[in-house]
Each structure stands twice: as C-alpha cells, then as structure tokens.
C-alpha cells in the first residue's frame, strides 16, 4: 500500500461540512471525484433544490407518479424499510413537521398543540407508493412532502466510499457532517479512532470507538435546539408519532454498522425508541452495535463494543446484556 501523505479535503455540501482523508496512489483523483459525487447526489436528493428528484416528488404529491434515478429509488426504498420495521420511530414524510419546528426555533416557542396535531396528520409513510417495475414513486396526499434528514447523509457517505474504491483506495474515511464512514484501517493497519461527541460539552468527546470498514453515526439532542420558557430543551429529532421532539430518556444514540445508511437511520430510530425498545429493535440488525447515553450521562454499550470502545475522563461504561 502507498504510505505517502494522505490527500484531504473539506467541502460544503448537502447542507453540511464534509471532510475526507484518503490514502492511495490515486487519492487526489478519488477526492475530486467524490466532490463531484456530492454535488450530483445533492442535485437528486435535496428538497431545497427545486430541480431535484425529491422536489419533483414533493411537487407531484397528490397528483402523479414521478420516475426517479436508481439512487433516489434506492434511498427511498431503504427509508421505507426502516419505517416499516421500526414503526413510529422513522418516517420519511416527516418534512412538514420539521418545517413547523424549524420555524418555532426562530421564536424559541413550541408550536401550538392544535397546529402540531393538524400537521401530524400529514405525516404517514404508507402514503409513499413505490413502483419497483417503473422505478417511480407517488406521494398520495397534497401537502405531504419528503425529507431525507435521517438517512440521506448516511446514504451519501456510502456512495462516497464507493467512489473512493473505484480509485483503488483501501484506506480512507469521510466525515459527512458527523456521519463517519471508513474504508479499511489506517495505512499502518490500526483501526480508525472515532470520537463520540459529548452530548453536553460542545468542545469535547465522551468516548472513542475503534472501527475498521464501518460507519459511526450519532444522533443527539444537542444539535439545533432551543430552550423553551419551561426550561425544556426542544431539539431537532422529532418523534413522528407524537409530533414533538423525542423524549425517550436518551440524549445521544450512536450506531456502528457496516453501512452508513444503516447507521444513520438506526441512530435516529434508537434515539427515538429509547433504551429498552431500541435494544429490542437492534435484534433485527445483526453486526450492528450501539452506544447509548441517557439523561444522567450514563454510557451504555452493546457487547460487541467491549474491546473497541473507551471513554475519556473516567466515564463509566455500562455493558448491555447480550442481544439474543
């Protein structure tokens, strides 16, 4: 393997900061191609770009089917799978609710109960009809629209790694706005060391997980939030069954999985499901590990992480019972 200096890049795309580090003879070319891939994917998947495929589907809600590319089809199919296997915890049609709460952040006041109830009635993933033969999708009701918030970055990170591999890269990582995905090990054969953001201390990490060929994604209540009059924290991860920011007792949920799309979706799902239900859900996803942090900043990890997770500053680690 080429052990020369890595090529690195930091770009802005898909509404976030993407930093990558690539080792290999064609590292620079790989990074350039990855940048183009980010632009291409954003053009397909962003609901904020009027020409994107997701915008097209949203504009045709209640009207007609829209034919889409295999990438958009794939990500919607995955979103649909997660919505089905984790009901009430994941919904790709949650966008109207997201917008409602995003506006509320500006005023630091939660939206009216009645408004939440009305908007919540538009959130229903079963209204997303997917036609696999035609690779076309249709949103049944006018006023519904899609947002790939809980899955899009992970999906894109997987595709970025695919681009790297095309350039024969066997050691790299991309950090897609906090979604980390890695190819292989570092050039010296040691695992990648990924810090887990401390949920209450912006400038520090709470632990480090060592990964090889895996992705690490964390969902936490510490991003994009406001504190209401009642001193309550209204954060950005919305429970699609209540219409309110999730209150599961967890402040952070991290998933380590072979694919970033799985880690992305499942970190959101576990964050919303909470400790007990979340662990139960994990049973359906073999080779998937979790780091869960509750309100008291107690850290819980699944068995598979025993050897590859460490906390900093003597934070105690609780090891969850084996998932059977």
């Amino acid at each position: 393997m080429n052990q020369t200096a890595p090529a690195q890049s930091i770009i802005y795309g898909m509404g976030t900061v993407i930093s990558s580090k690539v080792f290999g003879e064609q590292a620079k070319e790989a990074l350039k191609a990855a940048e183009e891939e980010v632009v291409r994917l954003e053009g397909l998947l962003s609901r904020f770009l009027p020409e994107s495929e997701i915008s097209r589907i949203n504009n045709s809600a209640g009207i007609c089917y829209e034919k889409i590319s295999s990438e958009t089809y794939e990500v919607l199919l995955r979103a649909d799978e997660y919505s089905k296997c984790c009901p009430g915890c994941f919904d790709v049609t949650v966008a109207p609710l997201i917008d409602l709460w995003r506006n509320a952040r500006g005023t630091a006041k939660p939206p009216d109960k009645s408004v939440i109830k009305r908007i919540l009635s538009q959130v229903d993933y079963t209204n997303l009809i997917i036609n696999p033969c035609e690779k076309a999708v249709y949103l049944k009701s006018t006023g519904q629209f899609l947002d790939l918030g809980g899955i899009g970055k992970g999906f894109a990170a997987d595709l970025i790694l695919k681009v790297f591999k095309k350039y024969e890269v066997s050691s790299a990582f991309t950090n897609f706005g906090g979604n980390v995905a890695a190819i292989g090990t570092k050039p010296d054969g040691s695992p990648w060391r990924i810090g887990i953001q401390h949920p209450r201390n912006e400038n520090s990490i709470i632990g480090i997980v060592a990964i090889v060929n895996q992705s690490v994604v964390t969902s936490g209540d510490y991003q994009q939030y406001f504190i209401g009059n009642n001193n309550k924290r209204y954060h950005h991860i919305l429970n699609p069954s209540t219409g309110y920011p999730s209150e599961s007792g967890l402040v952070s949920a991290t998933i380590i999985a072979d694919s970033s799309v799985a880690a992305d979706a499942l970190s959101t799902i576990l964050f919303i499901a909470g400790m007990n239900k979340g662990i139960e859900l994990l049973k359906s996803f073999p080779e998937t590990e979790a780091i869960l942090i509750d309100k008291d900043l107690q850290v819980y990890i699944t068995q598979g992480l025993k050897e590859c997770f460490q906390t900093v500053e003597r934070v105690k680690i609780n090891i969850l019972d084996p998932i059977i």
């Binding site: 580090k21 906090g178 953001q197 400038n203 990490i205 997980v209 510490y222």
Partner: peptide
C-alpha cells in the same frame, strides 16, 4: 493515557456549528 486517548481521526455527531468544524474550515 488520557492525552493519547484524545487523539481521534474524526468525531461522530459533532454539530455543524461546533467550533471543531469551524476550525477545520478555517484551516482549510
């Protein structure tokens, strides 16, 4: 042990607004 343990390649779940990212962008 602590000092070395803080060396990481990337941080998962760091916020978009986190200073670390801004620093990275700044250095870029």
């Amino acid at each position: 042990i602590d000092a070395q343990s803080l060396e990481v390649d990337a941080i998962s779940g760091a916020t978009l607004t986190s200073k670390a990212y801004l620093k990275a962008v700044e250095s870029a």
